[in-house]
């Protein structure tokens, strides 16, 4: 049973790692203006923060995604991912409450990506990511991870 949960945790870790690393990668491989344009769609974000968010967030997504894939600082990375997911959920809901519209393209995976989610779809993905990430935060042991090697007694 425990073994099963371990493998389930590994699956969640790889899933979350892939989602966030890919999301960061696609945005980083495009001009910043493209990411800025995607962020500007969320009218609740003040213009002054747009360049900062466009420059910083893709790197955070990329690093957290890679850390999860490699299994380094899994609980901390998962906590970061759950924070990002919560932020995105809050942003989508707030934007919906303030403007009354759900965006057709959330802009989460960049322009050139083969994945395009609407705000409603990404809301579901973020909720799932949040649950998965919290599961990883609560797990103390993570198989096939750098943590397992580095923290071995």
């Amino acid at each position: 049973m425990n073994r099963g949960i371990d493998y389930f945790g590994l699956f969640l870790r790889i899933f979350l790692g892939c989602v966030f690393a890919y999301s960061g990668y696609t945005k980083l491989m495009e001009p910043i203006a493209q990411t800025e344009a995607a962020i500007v769609q969320y009218e609740v974000i003040p213009y002054v923060f747009v360049p900062w968010i466009a420059r910083i967030f893709p790197w955070i997504e990329m690093i957290l995604g890679c850390f999860l894939l490699l299994g380094y600082a899994v609980r901390l990375s998962a906590l970061g991912v759950s924070g990002l997911s919560t932020g995105f959920i809050g942003l989508i809901l707030l934007n919906y409450m303030m403007t009354g519209k759900m965006l057709e393209d959330c802009g989460c995976f960049g322009e050139g990506s083969f994945i395009h989610f609407s705000a409603a779809q990404i809301l579901v993905v973020d909720l799932i990511s949040l649950i998965f990430a919290l599961f990883l935060v609560l797990r103390k042991k993570h198989i096939l991870s750098l943590d397992g090697i580095l923290l071995k007694n």
Binding site: Y25, L28, M29, W59, C66, F67, L70, Y72, A73
Partner: peptide
């Protein structure tokens, strides 16, 4: 190890970009 990993990720991405 964390710092080296983060450095490799950032360096790799900057190279790809």
């Amino acid at each position: 190890v964390g710092i080296i990993l983060a450095g490799c990720i950032v360096g790799g991405m900057l190279f790809l970009r």
